[in-house]
Amino acid sequence: MADRAFDIRRMPGAVTLAVVCFVILYIPMVILVANSFNAGKVIGQWEGLSLRWYLAALQNEAFLAAAANSLVLATIAAFMATVLATMAALATTRSDGFRGKGAIHIVLNQPLMVPEIVLAIALLIILAQVKQATGYTGLGYLIAAHTTFCIPFAYMPIRARLEGMDMTLETAAADLYASRAYAFRRVTLPLLAPGILAGFMLAFVVSLDDVVISSFLKSPGQETLPTYLMGELRRNLSSEIYAISSLLLLISVLIVAGSWLATRQKT
């Protein structure tokens, strides 16, 4: 068979397209980072290398507070959405239909169907009543709203993963008298992990990008990065924006590199 030497993993053209895809994704990032070192204030007018915008960004309390808010919010909302979506995906896949399955599926996708601005205003009207009744003005409202619209984004990849997943291993484990929980933890969950990771990252990204819902629901002091940058961008675009973005990029690269190294060491 050596002469056929065919590896199904090599789809013709797939690698080329994938490389093109990565390049396209990163070109704007390169432009962004390059501009962040611009000594000049105006984007597109190069005036030499400088770190002045990084210094400015690191002393910008409003930015730092907004960044912190956003990271906390995105992490918690993505985590909760992923947990809820995983449970729901386990319920709606790998079975012949059961009563209500279609309905559950539609409900889980419902937040996708509502434009941001509409959900924002509707939530504002309802949550304002809750705020007045309870006096609570914390981050909880934003977390709940973000969790809600993140659920379908986490649910879809997890469901795609589960769909038609081989059940023999679980059945085998159950046959060997493993408890249901044990079988889930040791067999199902590891099989599901890539889907869960994909779902979490999608939810995280979606939460991080939300402007409209956050700006309608935020209470005093709850500026998030997108709501902060939106105001900033509209009038006063300076190289500081690029420094701010590059800093965030650096943080994310560090997190990725760290987690990658951590998993490598396990082997």
């Binding site: 003005t137 981050l139 709940a144």
Partner: peptide, 11 residues
């Protein structure tokens, strides 16, 4: 619970 823990001190 998470919502409560995260509540910024009401101003």
């Amino acid at each position: 619970l998470a919502a409560l823990l995260l509540s910024a001190a009401p101003a």
